[in-house]
């Protein structure tokens, strides 16, 4: 296990977890999420091959409809 900070809270996740797996772990729909890792927002094609490392700061912003 490694420790990352996800949405401001320390969280233990499996070593070599991808961003796609973290999004799924938090029960979020990847199409409705903006994910930022250490200050960089990633396009959706990067979710499956971006590894979350020990100490990484991850922000997952979920969008709901309405405008």
């Amino acid at each position: 296990m490694i420790k990352a900070v996800i949405n401001g809270k320390e969280a233990e996740v499996k070593k070599d977890s991808t961003l796609a797996e973290i999004i799924s772990l938090y029960k979020l729909n990847p199409e409705r999420v903006v994910a930022e890792v250490n200050g960089n927002v990633l396009t959706r094609d990067k979710y499956a091959d971006t590894l979350v490392n020990n100490g990484d700061k991850v922000e997952l912003i979920n969008f709901v409809g309405g405008g």
């Binding site: 199409e31 409705r32 990633l42 396009t43 969008f63 709901v64 405008g67």
Partner: peptide, 25 residues
Amino acid sequence: KAETKAMIIRECAAKCRESFIIGAS
């Protein structure tokens, strides 16, 4: 639409890195 909101913010935040991006949810 939620999916389009997220897509626009992802694309702009990842590729228009000088800009300030403001969304709503």
